[in-house]
């Protein structure tokens, strides 16, 4: 397998996509050749396209933006239309989002499947993982399970050239918020605790008092 991993995070290397990819690669640890690329910057875009052309298996990882792919990822997809297909490739996607429930990524998943078909390649599926924002600042105990799952996803991929269906299923839960979770959210939202992450950062930047500003109102 000649694997290309394309990281479509607009945050470039300093992203949650990179953190998850690192765990995947830790598990992958195979002798296969791996080409890694990014989509931020003109030179990186060129490399990503060249990596796509030269590989037989491609994984594209990116964050969910407005329940869809980010603009730079769409731009990359458009550039793939101009590529001559000499070999049919195996293409898989990993989509991560801030919100925990996978329903946000469901329409995009349909798009990714159709896109792969349109380009004449073989679709390996889309790994969907929500609740990822903030993992960078979480203590190791909180990310241990998630990182372990991505490591396993990597080792399975090295062995079977495909995503582990069991882990995929685990990662995409919850689909929607459960009744108990909604109840809990409503309960703690009265205390302001649900805004904690945002308030902490707003205060750090001396912007807390301006948090309800409407700069574009006329």
């Amino acid at each position: 397998m000649k694997l290309a991993i394309i990281n479509g995070s607009p945050r470039y290397k300093n992203s949650n996509s990179t953190l998850l990819m690192d765990q995947f690669l830790k598990g992958f640890s195979s002798k296969s050749e791996i080409a890694q690329s990014y989509l931020v910057g003109t030179e990186n875009k060129k490399k990503a396209l060249a990596d796509f052309v030269e590989s037989d298996t491609v994984l594209i990882i990116f964050p969910l933006y407005t329940d869809c792919k980010p603009g730079i990822v769409k731009e990359f997809f458009e550039s793939l239309l101009g590529v001559e297909n000499s070999v049919q490739k195996r293409v898989g996607f990993i989509v991560q989002s801030g919100f925990p429930e996978s329903i946000h990524s469901e329409a995009l998943e349909r798009y990714l499947q159709k896109l792969t078909k349109r380009l004449g390649h073989i679709y390996l599926g889309t790994v969907i993982k929500g609740g990822v924002e903030g993992i960078k600042i979480m203590p190791p105990g909180m990310t241990k399970k998630l990182f372990g799952q991505f490591e396993k996803l990597g080792s399975y991929f090295a062995e079977f050239q495909n995503f582990d269906p069991k882990i995929m299923k685990q990662l995409r839960t919850p689909y929607k918020l459960s009744a108990s979770r909604i109840f809990f959210f409503n309960l703690i939202s009265k205390t302001g605790l649900t805004n904690f992450y945002w308030d902490m950062n707003l205060k750090k930047n001396n912007a807390f008092e301006q948090r309800f500003d409407k700069p574009f109102s006329v």
């Binding site: 607009p10 933006y65 407005t66 869809c68 792919k69 603009g71 769409k74 731009e75 997809f77």
Partner: peptide
Amino acid sequence: IAGFTSSALKKITDRFVCL
């Protein structure tokens, strides 16, 4: 284009988060 609205349109839509 490639089954969806253009990257140009998505570029500005992404930035609507500020709204």
